[in-house]
Design a protein around this nucleic acid. Structure first.
Length: 427
RNA sequence: GGAGAGGUGGCCGAGUGGUUGAAGGCGGCGGCCUCGAAAGCCGUUGUGCCGCUUCGCGGUACCGCGAGUUCGAAUCUCGCCCUCUCCGCCA
């Protein structure tokens, strides 16, 4: 949520930022009008309340002195009615204002390239050299089905399209990957491991920005005020919802492995083949709460933490800075990490690391105190990494001509020493 | 899911319609005392919003959440949520 005072004082900056984000749906003038009306109503109401409180004392004294208070009470009845009316109006305008504010995206940081869509994203750096194959590399669907570890048909039978079943060494590979990631982030990068609820209430969803605007992207549990989490960012960032932390507690680093559930509404026809875009996938998430002046440094460090996973796995990647038009709703700045997938001949997103500045902190009311006044923390999140996509990257980058897949060195201790996944019947 | 009890400030705990933002205690902070510390004593101690002559002042709201009764609600009524105990069920 953006600060209403910011809207009030610098509406033109907001207008420009919204135009860059392709957010033409937000009408700043309506926001300003609602704010003005609210303040007028609140002012009148509070003056009447003050009179009411004053009169109440007098009436109390009269009654204690056994004197007649009927006249004062009759007079106050009128004031009371007027207050009730104003209160209703304030409530209505409050609701309108908060709905408007909740639908305004975060403001892009000045360092973010301006642009309409992904074509304006900026390549920040690249790591590793894509391997040259002396055979035509297959994509993960071919590799996985030949090895008998990816079973898309059974996923559809049990649930529906965009669900899949992973078997045997494939399941073991995912388990190895996320254990490796969690060990790295907790052991070397200083994150505290969290095992959060996989379903959260609407208030929590609103805190990180999934609600009210993007309800159709998530799965709601029928008959309950509960949503399957689309990312661990939601429960983990909200751990301190409503809290005032002591400045000495910051920064806080959390990591969590969870399944992520996404309805993928609006992505019909995109990435229908394979495991790239599923309704359910595992992800190791990194979340930070920190002071405002450190958040961009923390973003760089968080992104580096995610990159380390790919480096240790020997997977080539590049880092992109998303442009204003391509960023998510809550982010002020986002780096996407894209891993090289030889089966597709493309870089594909495997991590998205964002500084949400005070945007989520305002919604979730997460503050810290170092002076007299509490201040909003800055929140950050990033994938470290999407586990399913990492498995895809391993399959495609480490495939051999005979259809087997070599296990990267760092994963072997997590795979019981297995050095390669080989087709059935071969050793 | 059923029955009962309960939800008050950082914590404990008073308070059943009228100077109660809320007694008392603990903790925290500041001071006195002390060579220093403890003890003791004194003072202080939340958050949001609105306004102003904005290192502060004034107003208003907040006693689980939401509605209602009343001139006036922490206190009364209704709905919801949560916690605890017992029963049922269950990994």
């Amino acid at each position: 949520m953006i600060d209403i005072k910011f809207v009030r004082e610098t509406p033109d900056i907001l207008r420009a930022a919204l135009a860059n984000r392709n957010s033409k749906g937000v009408d700043v003038d309506i926001l300003l009008d609602a704010d003005k009306e609210r303040r007028t109503l609140v002012h009148e109401m509070e003056q009447l309340r003050a009179a009411q409180n004053q009169a109440s004392l007098t009436i109390g004294e009269l009654k204690r002195g056994k004197q007649d208070a009927a006249a004062a009470m009759a007079e106050m009845k009128l004031v009371s009615d007027r207050v009730k009316m104003l209160d209703e109006q304030v409530r209505a305008v409050d609701e309108q204002l908060s709905n408007l504010l909740l639908s305004v995206p975060n403001l892009p940081d000045a360092s973010v390239p301006v642009g309409r869509d992904e074509h304006a994203n900026r390549i920040e750096r690249a790591w590793g050299t894509p391997r040259t194959f002396d055979f035509e590399p297959r994509d993960h669907v071919d590799i996985g089905e030949r090895l008998g570890i990816l079973d898309f048909a059974t996923g559809v039978k049990l649930a529906k399209a965009r669900f899949c079943l992973v078997r045997g060494m494939g399941a073991r590979l995912e388990r190895a990957l996320y254990n490796f990631m969690l060990d790295l982030h907790t052991g070397e990068h200083g994150y505290t491991e969290i095992l959060p609820p996989y379903a959260v209430n609407s208030d929590t969803m609103q805190g990180t920005g999934q609600l009210p605007k993007f309800a159709e992207d998530s799965f709601k549990l029928e008959g309950h005020d509960l949503w399957l989490i689309p990312t661990a960012e939601v429960p983990v960032t909200n751990i301190h919802k409503g809290d005032i932390l002591d400045a000495s507690e910051l920064p806080k680093y959390f990591t969590a492995l969870t399944p992520c559930f996404r309805s993928e509404a609006g992505s019909y026809g995109a990435d229908t083949r394979g495991m790239i875009r599923q309704h359910q996938f595992n992800k190791v998430e990194l979340v930070k709460l920190c002071t405002p002046e450190t958040s961009f440094d923390e973003l760089d460090k968080l992104t580096a933490n995610a990159e380390t996973v790919l480096q240790r796995l020997g997977l080539p990647y590049r880092v992109m800075t998303l442009c204003t038009g391509d960023m998510g709703f809550s982010a002020a700045k986002t780096y996407d990490i894209e891993v090289w997938l030889p089966g597709q001949g493309k870089f594909r997103e495997i991590s998205s690391c964002s500084n949400c500045t005070d945007f989520q902190a305002r919604r979730a009311n997460i503050r810290f105190k170092r002076g007299k006044k509490p201040e909003f923390v800055h929140t950050l999140n990033g994938s470290g990494l999407a586990v399913g996509r990492t498995a895809i990257a391993v399959l495609e980058n480490y495939q051999e001509a005979d259809g087997s897949v070599v296990i990267p060195e760092v994963l072997r201790p997590y795979m019981g020493g297995v050095e390669a996944i080989r087709p059935q019947g071969k050793t």
